[in-house]
Computed example of a mutant assay.
Amino acid sequence: MLRALIYCLAPPPPTVNLVSNKSNVVRGKTVPNGTVSIKINAKVYMGRSDAKGLFNIKITTLAAGTRLYVTVTDKYGYTSKERVVIVVDRIPPAPPTVDSITSKSKVITGKAEANATVIAYVGSQKIGSAKADKYGKYTIKITPKKSGTSIKVVAVDGSGNQSVGKIVKVRP
């Protein structure tokens, strides 16, 4: 009975804005003037919410997939249940490398971020794509292109982040 009463008195878990692998601050909203605790692995970051319940707590930049456990303790000493937040990937992959392409080439090969989707374009037209293997190697099947044609190759990671394009001219 007492346990049920405590759960009724405990504040709801804080609302937390998106946290990415570029973030160095965790922002959100909770009860006014609460003590917010963020547990990341073995480290705990603490901060307070303002009179409107808003909080900003500085953290170190984290790897995508890291779990944050966020709670708030209100002015009466009651602590909320944990809100689990997972760090999302917002960093694009490096541009892929592209091996030499000739006017007789039927494939484009090179290296990209492991498991990324590699896409080749001539202008805005997609001419082929392939998934890089666990080592980053990829092979895209294409129809041969004329000498001098510019082919742009990009890598897209599992989170949808796209690299800068690598532009290669088809050699004779």
Rank of each mutant, 00 (worst) to 15 (best):
Arg48Ser: 14
Val25Phe: 01
Arg171Tyr: 01
Ala42Arg: 11
Lys126Ile: 14
Lys166Arg: 14
Lys169Ser: 08
Val70Glu: 06
Met1His: 11
Gly136Ala: 03
Ser103Pro: 03
Met46Ile: 15
Val88Leu: 08
Ala94Gly: 06
Gly77Phe: 01
Pro144Cys: 02
Tyr7Trp: 11
Lys131Glu: 02
Ser105Gln: 05
Gly77Gln: 07
Phe55Thr: 09
Thr73Cys: 02
Ile142Ser: 01
Asp89Phe: 00
Gly123Trp: 06
Lys137Ile: 14
Thr15Ala: 10
Ile91Trp: 00
Val98Met: 10
Ser105Asp: 04
Asp89Cys: 00
Tyr7Ser: 13
Lys137Leu: 14
Ile6Ser: 00
Ala112Leu: 05
Leu68Ala: 06
Lys145Met: 05
Gly34Asn: 08
Met46Thr: 15
Thr61Cys: 02
Ser80Arg: 10
Met1Asp: 13
Cys8Thr: 15
Met46Arg: 08
Gly136Gln: 04
Ala116Ile: 08
Lys29Ala: 05
Val107Met: 09
Ser100Lys: 11
Leu9Thr: 11
Thr35Glu: 11
Tyr138Gly: 09
Leu5Phe: 12
Val107Leu: 08
Arg48Gly: 11
Gly34Phe: 11
Val26Tyr: 04
Ser23Phe: 05
Val153Gln: 06
Ser129Asp: 14
Pro92Glu: 12
Ala116His: 07
Pro95Lys: 12
Ser159Gly: 02
Ser147Phe: 00
Lys126Gln: 15
Val44Gly: 06
Ala63Cys: 05
Pro144Phe: 02
Lys75Gly: 06
Ala64Trp: 02
Leu54Tyr: 13
Ile127Ser: 04
Thr73Lys: 11
Val164Ala: 13
Lys166His: 12
Ala116Tyr: 04
Asn41Val: 14
Thr109Glu: 12
Gly160Arg: 05
Ser80Gln: 09
Pro92Leu: 02
Arg83Gln: 15
Ile119Trp: 04
Val98Phe: 10
Asn41Asp: 15
Thr143Val: 11
Thr60Glu: 13
Ser150Lys: 13
Val156Cys: 05
Ala63Ser: 13
Pro92Val: 05
Ala51Thr: 15
Arg90Asp: 15
Lys106Val: 15
Thr109Pro: 05
Val31Tyr: 01
